[in-house]
Amino acid sequence: MEVRTIKVFTTVDNINLHTQVVDMSMTYGQQFGPTYLDGADVTKIKPHNSHEGKTFYVLPNDDTLRVEAFEYYHTTDPSFLGRYMSALNHTKKWKYPQVNGLTSIKWADNNCYLATALLTLQQIELKFNPPALQDAYYRARAGEAANFCALILAYCNKTVGELGDVRETMSYLFQHANLDSCKRVLNVVCKTCGQQQTTLKGVEAVMYMGTLSYEQFKKGVQIPCTCGKQATKYLVQQESPFVMMSAPPAQYELKHGTFTCASEYTGNYQCGHYKHITSKETLYCIDGALLTKSSEYKGPITDVFYKENSYTTTIK
């Protein structure tokens, strides 16, 4: 009895394709271990004539594949690729409408935090270190965002349907971005203890939790000093293409032309909904596939993004 075979390709990165001759009487799992086709788990399936010449994702289970996976995804987590594939199996079914010149995501599976993050990423200057993220990001900007969303979920250790947080998501993504040249110098002034300067680099240099107003941050924000008295913390120097200011959701007025974009969060910790506000020729609110415009805006804002380049204080 002759062994019926077909020729397929296996890959971990969709760049390096490895030619395989597979036995049609055995499952993919018996031949390769966990195997995925377009995100779908085909591990328990036997090869079919229609699979001839198709590319299958496999887990990096030998040295060659491990090197290829690390170079593309910059992670050695053995569960990463499987999590990416199972997320992709959902995100490829989502709709990605162009809204006001940006790629958004039609609401499904509690994905409003991903839509808000995706919209924000198209408006701030950011370059990702893992080629996987950078490639998928370019495709997302062009309207094909399924891979990018699935990668975000995998890097953030999230599953489809789980509630997510924009600030946490951005923080994970910033860790995989090139923020080497970003720098922030802060000064804390206390009447009792004097003053202390701190220099922050990388992710810490672009994120701040405690106030939404970048102007206020430049002037000074009140913080408790270690001595128990009130101290003032203010920005001395900022070198970065953008800054992200966050605070627990509270009524906040966004003035046209003073910011790049913002995240609105309605609801409580267990259950809520994100919308995205962007400042173009007027203010726009993007909620999944829905767009509304207004000249002014007041609502429960939790993150505001500002364009920056270089700032030095005039406070002496």
Rank of each mutant, 00 (worst) to 15 (best):
E2A: 12
E2G: 13
V3T: 12
R4K: 13
T5A: 12
T5M: 13
T5V: 11
I6L: 14
K7Q: 13
V8T: 07
F9M: 13
T11E: 00
V12G: 06
D13T: 06
N16E: 03
N16Q: 07
T19V: 13
Q20E: 11
Q20C: 12
D23N: 12
M24V: 13
T27N: 12
Q31W: 13
G33V: 05
P34A: 15
T35V: 13
L37Y: 13
L37K: 11
L37I: 10
D41Y: 07
V42I: 14
K46C: 11
K46H: 12
P47Y: 02
N49D: 14
N49F: 10
S50K: 13
G53D: 10
G53H: 13
K54N: 13
F56H: 05
Y57V: 10
L59P: 08
P60E: 05
R66N: 11
V67I: 13
V67P: 04
V67Q: 13
A69T: 08
A69I: 07
E71Q: 09
E71A: 13
Y72V: 03
Y72E: 06
Y73C: 03
Y73K: 04
Y73W: 04
T75K: 10
T75P: 04
T76C: 14
P78L: 09
S79D: 15
F80I: 01
F80H: 02
F80G: 06
L81A: 00
G82Y: 12
G82S: 14
R83E: 01
Y84A: 07
A87I: 08
L88Q: 06
T91L: 05
K95F: 09
Y96I: 06
Y96L: 07
Q98K: 12
Q98E: 15
V99A: 09
N100L: 12
L102Q: 09
L102H: 14
S104G: 14
S104E: 08
I105V: 12
I105E: 04
I105L: 05
I105K: 03
I105G: 00
N110W: 00
N110R: 01
N110T: 00
N111S: 05
N111A: 06
C112V: 03
A115E: 05
A117C: 08
A117Y: 00
L118E: 07
L119S: 01
L121E: 02
L126C: 09
K127Q: 15
F128G: 02
N129W: 12
P130A: 10
P131D: 03
P131I: 02
P131A: 03
Q134C: 08
D135V: 07
D135M: 09
D135H: 12
Y138W: 14
R139F: 08
R141V: 11
A146D: 06
N147M: 10
N147S: 11
A150F: 02
A150Y: 00
L151A: 03
I152E: 02
I152G: 06
L153D: 04
L153R: 03
Y155S: 01
Y155K: 03
C156V: 08
K158T: 04
V160I: 08
G161Y: 04
G161R: 01
G164Y: 00
D165G: 11
V166Y: 10
Y172C: 09
Y172G: 09
F174D: 09
F174R: 04
A177F: 00
N178A: 11
L179W: 07
S181N: 12
S181Q: 15
L186A: 05
N187I: 06
V189F: 10
V189W: 10
C190W: 02
C190L: 03
K191I: 10
G194S: 02
G194E: 00
Q195H: 11
Q195T: 15
Q195E: 15
Q196T: 11
Q197R: 11
Q197K: 09
Q197Y: 04
T198Y: 15
T199Y: 07
L200E: 08
K201Q: 13
V206R: 04
M207K: 06
M207Y: 08
M207F: 07
T211F: 03
L212A: 05
Y214G: 01
Y214N: 00
Q216A: 11
F217T: 05
K219R: 12
Q222L: 12
Q222C: 09
I223C: 14
I223T: 11
I223G: 14
P224E: 11
C225A: 05
T226V: 13
C227H: 04
C227A: 01
G228R: 05
G228N: 00
A231P: 02
A231H: 05
K233A: 13
K233W: 08
L235R: 05
L235S: 02
L235Q: 00
V236N: 04
V236K: 03
Q237A: 11
Q238E: 03
Q238T: 01
P241G: 00
F242L: 02
M244Q: 01
M244S: 00
M245T: 05
S246P: 00
P248Q: 11
P249S: 01
K255Y: 04
T258Q: 13
T260S: 06
C261T: 02
A262M: 03
E264T: 06
Y265V: 02
Y274E: 01
I277H: 04
I277S: 01
T278H: 08
S279Y: 00
S279I: 00
S279T: 08
S279C: 15
S279R: 01
K280T: 12
E281A: 06
T282F: 06
T282V: 12
L283Q: 00
I286Y: 06
I286V: 07
D287A: 03
G288Q: 12
A289Q: 07
L290H: 15
L291M: 13
L291V: 14
L291T: 14
T292S: 10
T292F: 13
K293I: 10
K293T: 14
S294I: 15
S295R: 10
Y297I: 08
K298E: 14
V304R: 01
F305A: 02
F305I: 12
Y306L: 05
E308I: 08
N309F: 09
N309M: 09
N309V: 15
S310L: 14
T312A: 10
T314A: 14
K316G: 15
